[in-house]
Simulated assay, not measured.
Amino acid sequence: MTDLPDLPPLREVINAHGLFASKALGQNFLFDEQLLGRIAAIPGRLRDTNVLEVGPGPGGLTRAALRAGARVTAIEMDKRCMAPLGDLAAAFPGQLTVIEGDATKVPADSLFPGEPYAILANLPYNVGTQLFTGWMGGEAWPPRWSSLTLMFQLEVAERIVAAPGSDAYGRLAVLAQWRATPKIALKVHRSAFTPPPKVMSAMVHVVPGEMPEGVSARVLERVTEAAFGQRRKMLRQSLKGMPGALAALEALEIDPARRAETLSVAEFVAIARILTAA
């Protein structure tokens, strides 16, 4: 894109508007524009692409996406950020739509009727997992979003990409991996944020894959909820309250003495397939 607007440094923007990161809103601002450009490059080419951003704050990642040519719809619940986002919309005419509201209550698909979109966000820590599970859940697949590129606490990111047998492996890993491919695309040091959080962070990039046939997402959720709800117990104990689950283990020749964290994603899918057909 040529003739990009000359924007003031982000620190000057927040100082001019008297902004500071709100702990109650889970805010941690990124000011390093080189880093923000690297994050915006993770999803690939953004020119003329619809992008949903949640929690843009003063607009650091927003301006990186706009510079890449994206058409951004940003949802922000902090009224203080409306003015700097408005300035950004004026600098990139026709590229930025700002919605004041709670992203957990706005169906993402409704913002892009009949069109695909990518989700790109430095998610507020206090709602990140809730939003992620919402975007990854449901029976309709493939989703309308083409990819998710999201900032999480490193611990959460590691849970999303965890392999069976690891301490981080659990329900979140199965949800993320049974019909999509997640990866940690970039680790971000705590010192990159203002104020610095107490933990490291990471960008997770997720691309939707094929939906396994004959499997209900809700049934799989119930199986993993039961199995990992008592993860230190053997499957014969944790799944005994789910009708048909122990018979499914027997049919699949899965040892009921195993624990949930030893089962592969494919084994959970196989159990859910039997229970879906029952």
Rank of each mutant, 00 (worst) to 15 (best):
L150T: 03
E100V: 04
A74Q: 07
V204R: 10
A21K: 11
E100A: 09
P142M: 14
M151N: 05
F92T: 03
M211H: 05
A40V: 02
L111N: 12
D78I: 01
H189L: 02
R67M: 13
T262H: 03
G94S: 12
I271S: 09
E250W: 01
G229C: 09
A257G: 13
E221F: 08
Q153I: 10
R63H: 06
L120D: 11
K79S: 15
R231L: 02
L186T: 06
V156K: 09
Q130Y: 02
D78P: 02
L46V: 03
S238G: 10
D87G: 07
S22W: 09
Q230H: 15
I14C: 00
A140G: 05
A217S: 08
G229M: 11
G241S: 05
T181S: 13
M200T: 07
L25A: 05
R144N: 14
E253Y: 00
G101H: 10
D102M: 05
N50S: 09
V223E: 09
A245I: 02
D3L: 12
A247F: 01
A24H: 09
I271C: 04
E100W: 14
G214F: 03
L239V: 07
V106H: 06
T2G: 12
V106I: 15
A118Q: 15
A16D: 05
L154C: 01
R258C: 00
V54G: 04
L154Y: 04
V51G: 00
L96C: 02
Y125D: 12
A91N: 05
D102K: 12
L10K: 12
G209A: 04
E253G: 02
K183E: 14
G44C: 08
G37Y: 14
I184A: 05
R11L: 08
F132I: 12
D167R: 15
K233E: 03
R67N: 13
G244H: 09
I271Y: 02
Y117S: 09
N28P: 13
T104M: 12
F29S: 13
A227T: 11
S238W: 08
V161C: 07
P208Y: 10
A103D: 06
P256C: 00
M1T: 09
G165T: 04
A91W: 11
E115Q: 15
Q177K: 12
E267P: 02
M82P: 03
P143V: 11
Q153N: 12
L61V: 00
L123K: 14
Q230S: 10
G57N: 06
R45G: 08
F193T: 08
G137H: 00
F132P: 11
P113Y: 08
A16T: 06
K79M: 10
Q237Y: 01
P5A: 10
D6G: 07
P124C: 05
G137M: 01
P93T: 01
P195L: 00
V265P: 13
M211I: 00
V156Y: 07
W178I: 15
L19W: 05
D109T: 07
R67Y: 09
Y117R: 09
F31Q: 08
G55W: 04
E261Q: 15
P56Q: 04
R71A: 08
L239P: 10
L131E: 01
V223Y: 11
T129M: 04
A121Y: 14
A192E: 13
G18W: 08
P208A: 10
H17G: 07
D3Y: 14
D167Y: 06
A176N: 13
V265Q: 12
G55S: 00
P142G: 11
L35S: 08
Q34I: 02
S238K: 10
E261F: 14
R38T: 04
P164G: 03
M151L: 13
A180Q: 08
